[in-house]
């Protein structure tokens, strides 16, 4: 069997995280995986959707680009996605908010059980992708976050 599963990549990420190395390049047949730690001097964080055009060197310019780029935060389980803790309440996050790995970005309801969803990354929210109150499947993109 060849190829890497998501679990494999998560495992490799944990290994790299716990090591002194700043980056890792892994090549297996046709597959090439490049990982760099956040804060490492590198142009791109690991992304499921590499930018199609090379981006200019990150200038310290403001405001940050809020055009729907960045990492996709996937639904950890299937259910109904809610933007806010209860109807009428302000949403957990909006575009332009800064989130950390443990920031709650929404709730997924599965048969009346509410599951908090966290961002899992540090950065700026660039897009709320999944609509409020609708079913999301496992792995569906909920929001996008531009990592620091």
């Amino acid at each position: 069997m060849s190829g890497l599963t998501r679990e494999d990549i998560d495992y490799i990420l944990r290994l790299v995280d716990g090591s002194d190395f700043e980056e890792l390049t892994l090549e297996m047949g046709d597959l090439k995986l490049e990982l760099r730690k956040a804060g490492a001097p590198a142009p791109l964080a690991p992304s499921a959707e590499p930018a199609s055009t090379p981006r200019p060197a990150p200038a310290p310019a403001t405001p940050p680009e809020l055009t729907g780029e960045g990492l996709e935060v996937p639904a950890p389980l299937l259910g109904i996605f809610y933007h806010a803790p209860k109807p009428g309440a302000p949403p957990f996050v909006t575009v332009g908010d800064r989130v950390g790995p443990d920031s709650v970005i929404g709730i997924i309801e599965v048969m009346k059980l509410m599951n908090q969803v966290t961002a899992g990354v540090t950065g700026l929210v660039t897009e709320i992708v999944a609509p409020n109150g609708e079913m999301v499947e496992h792995g569906q993109t909920l929001i996008r976050v531009k990592p620091d």
Partner: peptide, 14 residues
Amino acid sequence: SYLSVGAVIEAAKG
């Protein structure tokens, strides 16, 4: 996945 009653019910309704 296949044994999750909650996911199956929500998916069918959704």
